[in-house]
Computed example of a mutant assay.
Amino acid sequence: MKTGTRDDHDVTDPPSSALSDACTARDGRIHRPLDRSARVFVAGKSGLVGSAVWRRLRREGFSDLVGPRSAELDLRERRAVLGWFAAARPNVVVVAAARVGGIKANASRPAEFLSENLRIQVNVLDAALKHGVQRLLFLGSSCIYPKFAEQPIREEALLTGHLEPTNDAYAIAKIGGILQVQAVRRQYGLPWISAMPTNLYGPGDNFHPEHSHVLPSLIRRFHEAKESAARSVVNWGSGSPRREFLHVDDLARACLHLLEHYDADSPVNVGTGTDLTIHELTQLVADVVGYQGSIEWDREQPDGTPRKLLDVSRLTALGWAPRIGLREGISQTYAWYVKNLESGTLRH
């Protein structure tokens, strides 16, 4: 049914043929391989996550991938998104597009993080619904969970407590995306799903000195300190918070695995199930980079959430497990960083 005035902003009921007829287990387990010739839209194809998903799908034999860059399609512009879906008609959508950043970027520009992410999500999900997209995966973030959630964090912790103030605007936007996916499932029966990745890193990351996340920021900081023979490097906070890190190529594998093996309302955590302190992480990055100086801490700066370790039992029960260890992944990422820094193609 539709209400209100018809215009190009309307979202229509998807055709009944869009409904899934596959048998789904009570815990959401399915075995539903995707057609490798299906048209798959990777929203955010140029970013850290989108580029990794694109690489994985190519490697798995998908032959019709589409992912216009932001200069070609601004996902914040509703008319443009609806028009693009009408012309492209994707069968599968992976929503990896988002405005992202570290603590400083989130804390200093919350209005932008809230507004832009909400617009991106609503536009893409509405257009996917209007044009009967058969399968959709929305990627959220582990920051959606309460600041003091019981550890490790289970999916059921969502909306049970207060958020971390330094990134609450981003978190609220991502929560909105999860709820929209669940609402579409309830109202239209489409087999759309959501996944909540932990902290990500890898090739294609943003190494901006102010806007990047902690791991790429550390790589850049220690590399520059090594090159300049700096005697010390100062990091934010106390170094005591614990964080979990997942290589983006492992996330990409998990995305395809979920699309082919999961169909239920609940979002699914994606991580390694292990964590370490930020202090331990800095020591590891410094060792990989080859920095020999001292490491200091600016305790006047915020730590953020004390601990954020995901319970990944739901995902591992579906038969998935990470493959890339943290030291190996950091070494690969640092090599990629140096190569692209030297060639002038680094994103920062």
Score class of each variant (00 low, 15 high):
280 E>F: 01
158 L>F: 14
180 Q>T: 06
23 C>L: 15
61 G>S: 08
12 T>I: 10
200 L>M: 08
132 G>P: 02
87 A>C: 04
236 W>D: 11
64 D>H: 14
248 V>M: 07
213 H>R: 14
302 P>N: 04
174 K>R: 06
178 I>E: 12
58 R>I: 13
333 T>H: 04
111 A>T: 13
344 G>W: 02
176 G>E: 02
300 E>F: 14
204 G>D: 04
305 T>K: 13
173 A>H: 01
115 S>V: 14
336 W>H: 07
56 R>C: 11
159 L>S: 10
56 R>H: 13
51 S>F: 07
94 V>D: 03
44 G>N: 09
67 G>E: 11
263 D>M: 08
190 L>N: 00
25 A>F: 13
185 R>E: 00
8 D>C: 12
205 D>L: 00
152 P>I: 09
52 A>Q: 03
232 S>A: 15
347 R>T: 10
316 T>K: 06
198 T>S: 11
24 T>P: 10
5 T>I: 12
207 F>D: 05
317 A>M: 05
176 G>R: 03
222 F>I: 02
78 R>Y: 02
115 S>A: 14
13 D>W: 08
324 I>Q: 07
191 P>F: 03
261 H>W: 01
254 A>K: 02
138 F>H: 05
31 H>V: 13
347 R>D: 12
142 S>L: 14
240 S>K: 13
326 L>A: 08
253 R>M: 08
185 R>A: 02
134 Q>W: 12
185 R>F: 00
238 S>F: 07
184 V>G: 05
276 L>A: 08
5 T>E: 11
314 R>K: 15
30 I>L: 06
134 Q>N: 11
186 R>M: 01
116 E>M: 11
166 T>M: 12
54 W>D: 08
190 L>P: 03
214 V>Y: 15
206 N>H: 11
33 P>G: 07
18 A>H: 04
335 A>F: 06
229 A>W: 06
55 R>C: 05
123 N>E: 00
198 T>Q: 09
11 V>I: 08
340 N>F: 07
164 E>N: 12
331 S>Q: 12
339 K>H: 08
313 S>L: 13
167 N>G: 12
262 Y>D: 04
195 A>V: 06
142 S>C: 15
